[in-house]
Design a protein around this nucleic acid. Sequence first.
DNA 1: AACGCGTGGCC
DNA 2: TGGCCAAGCGT
Length: 364
Amino acid sequence: MIIKVALRCVEPKLYTLIIGFYLVLLTFIYNIRLNYVMQTHLCNIFKHLIQYRMHKKATPSLLDWYHTHGRHELPWRNTEDPYHIYLSEVMLQQTQVKTVLERFYFPFLQRFPSLKTLGDAALDDVLKMWEGLGYYTRAKNLHKTATLVERLPSDIDALIALPGIGKNTAHAIAAFAFGQPVPVMEANVRRILCRIFALQTPAPKDLWDKAYDLLDTQNPFEHNQAMMDIGSGICLPKNPKCTLCPFASICTGKQTPQRYPLKQKKTVPIREEFIMVYRYNDRLSLTQRKGKFLHGLWGFESVDVPLCAAEYLGEVTHAYTHFKLVCKVYVYDELDKEQTHYFNLSEIRKLAISKVDEKILKLL
DNA sequence: AACGCGTGGCC
DNA sequence: TGGCCAAGCGT
């Protein structure tokens, strides 16, 4: 352990080795009166130094790899603004780069160019910009955070204290916006670590320990970005391109990459719902969702039993991550007093609605 | 600790 | 095509 720490602090130059060899030789040849423990200790230090040099030589540095192969054009890599970096991190939670880059990042920033404009906006307007991106509590927490702080803190614990910022996002902001020597721990990094160290079902703490161990503390930005680029472009879930990987020489799991990490499959339940829509003078009844599911979005009402007199329009299905939804849609051409909100088509387009309700709308 | 939480890319 | 998966977080 002491040796590993020493190796992190001191970049072993060639002259260190030469002097080291010279000392060891002196120790043996002239039988200098060092005790046995000291001799072994010295020998071990130099053995590790040699191994470290060979390792560095065998694996081209991540820094070099990043300069040559990294995705330098990603907009959140070319800004110093912590708000921009923070926004990208939240949008990218469980969401592919392509989606965020092509459809959401720029329009959102155009509409809310600063933390202050975001905090001053109405939540419904924020949700409208988030429409189609999914996981809507992200938008709610983003807005909430914008009302809480004028600028983002750089301290990891202070970041985690903000709603919507967990351990990974806090580390990402610390590393990317404030240059702190900390690793990130998301899907790509996790998979790389599992493959390198042949881990099937690692505990989170083990992964963080490995990540800290592997981190290039001199270049945290490049190191973390490189890890994510390798994870998304080389160390793929299926058919990883190990021949292109800078970690190939030290990777212990590359023979059977599909085993690391081990994935458990879950069966998704099917949920059936009756959707009851009231239609009156080309206006439709909608309600704003209150719970955690599709939070804040507008949609058609789900009922236990549809009205007998209502007309059955057909089925709409939608696959979520944890269940499959089958909606049987009914419409009734009367005004129901209990429905407080009626909208025509152009008004509905201004509301934030989900994919299911979009499908139901199409059916109507 | 194990779930609930959306949508779309990719094969 | 259906199934897997994605820059995770809150509870």
